[in-house]
Amino acid sequence: MSSAKNRMIARAAREIAPGMVVNLGIGMPTKVVNHLASDFPVCLHTENGLTGIGPVLPPERADRNLIDAGGAYVSTIPGSAFFDSATSFAMVRSGRLDLTMLGAFEVSANGDLANWKIPGKFSPGVGGGIELAQKARRVVVLTTHTDRAGAPKLKQQCTLPLTACGCVARVFTDMAVIDITERGFALIETLEGISPGEVANATDAPLILPEAPPPTF
């Protein structure tokens, strides 16, 4: 993984405040956990029925009955709880998740999220993504700023099928931290060595720039 992605993930980890209940989506968000101290007070939730997720175990130490929603063999920690799928999503829909971190194909300037389907190319189903995006108290996205072809993923409007409307509060990319505000995308921080102008050029929507040079990460 590039150092820019690593720094993005490390920066996103600082978004998690002590005491939160957090769901980390499949992919890069899952890696955020590697940047939390082992004694950091946080409760991680996974859709398939566990709160209090412990470290991923190697196959020889794995419990065949204990996975996270991405299929990784995780473990419990003191205080973990298991529950069925209805209870798991009752937690999600009733606002028990303080924060979820999700991946994205596209994020729009009003916070719409598209991350589950590319018609004709990728349609594995939405899983728990809609409920996480729609109902977590705070939804932040971790994504590369552009796709593999260099096309911006932050756009005025999403073109792909939506996961949820107006749900995203903040986006962490390998170039910047960007908030979704009432006036659209606002630059909050930049990756060290990246200028606000470069971020604006890689964003397919107006980007509100801070008056002073933004902090770097």
Binding site: E47, R93, I130
Partner: peptide, 30 residues
């Protein structure tokens, strides 16, 4: 395809003698 928690609730309703559930999950999506 169902949203995961909605699949769970549809099944729970089926097992509970309830004919349907109402939810705002997925509004504005396909």
């Amino acid at each position: 395809f169902n949203a995961q928690g909605i699949l769970a609730e549809r099944i729970r309703a089926g097992g509970s003698g309830i004919c349907a559930v109402l939810s705002d999950i997925g509004i504005g999506t396909e």
